[in-house]
Design a protein around this nucleic acid. Structure first.
Ligand SMILES: [Zn+2]
Ligand SMILES: [Zn+2]
Ligand SMILES: [Zn+2]
Ligand SMILES: [Zn+2]
Lengths: 149, 149
DNA sequence: ACCGTGGTTGATACTCCGTCTCAATAATGC
DNA sequence: GCATTATTGAGACGGAGTATCAACCACGGT
């Protein structure tokens, strides 16, 4: 079992037969430091030495390799986060964007019902739960009671 | 019960105190003819006499009034469809874009679990089911068995 | 019917996000 | 070290939506 489940982004890239170049390494490092998720533009901003095209390409590569997940904010803004194994979805903080996984996907129940009702074929689904994360919630409360401008 | 539940887009617009102008009327008519859903650009294309800005503004207006729903395709492309009363979601054909409602949203079950687990606050959710609609499914089968190029 | 007010329009410029192009560059195998 | 090939990055490009702003039109008051 040499080339099984990659445990790091680097491994994933190399196992897929892609070169681990400097720009990629930089992006991977940055991404790994943001378990809460990130946007492509955030990466661009923090790595001015790396070209925008390369950032987008690398994110897409990670996406194709299943190493990161693509999420959609309330306004449709795309956001990415490190992927975990297995079927899962995310909660997304509407304020800071922090993402968290949740595995329990009882969507299957809904799909079963749908499958029985529709003559078409179900291919997949998307689900996102929008939250105010504990940290932002706390801030919100502090602000509203503290300094009522 | 004079100004209750609007039954047409026109009524909805007027009840909200907005003028029912010609451009709007044209957009509303077109939208009403596309129960399967539509994109803003489709409307633009079919109504060259109406400015793009107006199309986008009107769609946004309908959205704000809750008369249409905004969906997100697998690739993130926005699409709109006439709204129905009550909490619901949509199935979206990945091929032709046709949208259909489904009311049964057992997402609540998931949310209950999440609520118990998280210290944050759940504000909302998004869910879309991607399908190959009956019509497209049929075509697919016909094509693959009929002309194997 | 006329006028004034304010909502509405639409051409255009602009922003944002992401992709494409293509010559220069870096990694790899020999 | 050299050829081969993947990768890079500056900049052009494209699609989607918004901002601007002068012209316009619907409507209420007279
Ligand atoms: Zn937060
Ligand atoms: Zn699921
Ligand atoms: Zn279809
Ligand atoms: Zn729901």
């Amino acid at each position: 079992m040499v080339t099984s489940e990659p445990h790091t982004l680097q491994e994933g890239i190399e196992q897929a037969g892609h070169r681990l170049t400097y720009p990629r390494q930089a992006i991977l490092d940055l991404v790994a430091q943001h378990p809460d998720g990130f946007t492509a533009e955030e990466v661009c901003a923090q790595l001015p030495q790396v070209g925008r095209a390369t950032v987008y390409r690398t994110v897409k590569l990670l996406l194709d390799l299943g190493l990161v997940c693509k999420m959609t904010g309330p306004d449709g803004a795309p956001r990415y986060t490190l992927s975990v194994a297995g079927h899962h979805h995310h909660t997304l903080c509407v304020r800071c964007g922090a993402a968290a996984d949740f595995q329990r996907c009882t969507v299957d129940l809904i799909l079963q019902t749908l499958r029985a009702e529709t003559a078409g074929v179900i291919l997949g689904h998307r689900m996102e739960v929008y939250v105010l994360c504990p940290r932002c919630l706390e801030q919100e409360e502090t602000t509203s009671s503290g300094s009522p401008t």
